[in-house]
């Protein structure tokens, strides 16, 4: 049998490729950046006279985490597991109770009038609060908002919020605004240098 001349042995090609492959597999980290996305409120203009915004007491819920990572929501201490349901009740006020947030009719473009709650959750912390507790509470609050949005989307569009198209998502966002304020702690003026 005559073999054609000039046949390069490519058998070791696989070995070389494997070597490179192993190297890249070892140095690769497949981590995707994930986290809780938030938007900070813009800094108030210094020349502007500080105008204490009048918010009705029934419309605001103060969620405070103190130095010992104890959680107080709406004036009472509670474990973090209970926070979500409490906030959901606060946001929706299903029975229209007089001590829970009022609702005001708002014309939503492409949807019509809807009773939008004027609830505002104010998250406060002290300098000694641990970051872990803060994130845990932040997470529960975002979860409460997301679930209320999901409920709204389910009722009106029959789908969860994340499956809605862009316009429907905008309507849901208008109907359930993410009114979560991160006030700076009171001691913020005493900044350590």
């Amino acid at each position: 049998m005559a073999r054609p001349a000039g046949d390069i042995n490519a058998g070791s090609m696989a070995d070389i490729a494997f070597l490179l492959l192993t190297f890249f597999m070892m140095v690769t980290t497949m981590d995707t950046e994930t986290g809780i996305q938030r938007r900070l409120p813009p800094m108030p203009d210094e020349n502007q006279i500080e105008q204490a915004e009048q918010i009705n007491k029934r419309n605001i819920m103060v969620v405070l985490i103190n130095n010992n990572d104890r959680l107080f929501a709406g004036g009472q201490e509670m474990p973090v597991e209970m926070l979500k349901d409490k906030v959901k009740e606060f946001l929706t006020n299903p029975a229209n109770l007089p001590d829970l947030p009022e609702k005001r009719e708002k014309e939503i473009e492409g949807f019509g009038p809807y009773m939008v709650s004027r609830a505002l959750v104010s998250l406060q912390n002290t300098r000694g609060t641990s970051y872990k507790a803060y994130i845990e509470v932040q997470n529960e609050l975002v979860k409460a908002f997301n679930e209320v949005r999901d409920d709204f989307a389910m009722q009106n569009f029959g789908k969860k919020y994340s499956f809605l198209d862009e316009d429907q998502q905008r309507i849901t966002r208008d109907a359930v605004p993410m009114s979560l304020s991160e006030r700076e702690p009171r001691e913020v003026t005493k900044r350590r240098r």
Binding site: G35, I36, Q37, I135
Partner: peptide, 8 residues
């Protein structure tokens, strides 16, 4: 103003 708290 756009921030993200990185979490696992």
């Amino acid at each position: 103003l756009k921030i993200m708290y990185s979490t696992r």
